[in-house]
């Protein structure tokens, strides 16, 4: 495992911890899109179907369990926790799941490396992960008041994707036959979705003002 991949995973882990910290200690999920969190839970559930059949490493297994467990518990907190759920911006978080899920499923059925159940599910999870942040970005734009933790959460998620691209470039040059078009293109699309957010994030950081996305 190279340094970019490891840093990417750690950034991903940090983003989840920031979100759990906000939910668990502040007992608030204000500004967090439940739609995005549910999509991530679906992403991990469909991608990690190999969890009990193919062993890669202890690290790999542990991280998969962490991402599965954290994504489902975040969804549980926002939907059912008696205090946390009161802070959910339900009226603002109106993105429809099936606008993203159905096209991703169709695309995975059409474009995949192998037409098997697991392979199609794995491809579906890649396509869905690429666009799963959209409800969150829409919510950020609607929320005039983005708190620090929410801003950091989205920033860390974007940083994780950017580091994965560096990881792929590194692997391409260091490993023989390392070519994965589906992973790369969906990963690139995913990272590009953060471009606008990154721009305003760095602007607010540079000028030392509160993060706010233009309508």
């Amino acid at each position: 495992m190279n340094i970019f991949r490891f840093a990417g995973d750690m950034t991903h882990l940090a983003s989840v911890l920031v979100l759990l910290l906000k939910i668990h200690t502040i007992k608030s999920c204000a500004g967090i899109s439940l739609k995005t969190q549910e999509l991530y839970a679906l992403v991990f559930a469909t991608r990690y179907l190999d969890l009990f059949t193919d062993y890669i490493s202890l690290y790999n297994t542990l991280m998969k369990l962490i991402f599965l467990g954290s994504s489902f518990s975040i969804v549980w907190y926002i939907r059912y926790h008696k205090i946390v759920r009161r802070s959910y911006d339900k009226d603002q978080d109106t993105f429809r799941h099936y606008f993203l899920v159905l096209p991703c499923l169709l695309l995975a059925l059409l474009i995949n490396e192998k037409f098997t159940f697991r392979e199609v599910m794995w491809t579906f999870s890649l396509y869905l992960e690429a666009v799963a942040i959209l409800p969150q970005l829409v919510l950020l734009q609607r929320t005039r008041n983005i708190d620090n933790l929410t801003g950091q959460y989205v920033f860390l998620l974007g940083a994780y994707r950017a580091l994965y691209i560096l990881n792929w470039i590194y692997r391409y040059f260091t490993e023989p036959h390392y070519v994965h078009w589906i992973t790369w293109i969906s990963g690139l699309v995913q990272t590009l979705l953060y471009a606008d957010f990154f721009y305003y994030y760095f602007q607010s950081w540079k000028n030392n003002v509160k993060l706010e996305l233009p309508a």
Binding site: R5, D9, H12, D50, D54, I56, S57, N60, M63, K64, F67, E113, W122, Y164, N167, E175, H177, Y178, V179, H180, T183
Partner: peptide, 10 residues
């Protein structure tokens, strides 16, 4: 195989 190379990522 090539399959496992991609799937060692999270």
């Amino acid at each position: 195989s090539q399959d496992t190379l991609a799937k060692d990522e999270l």
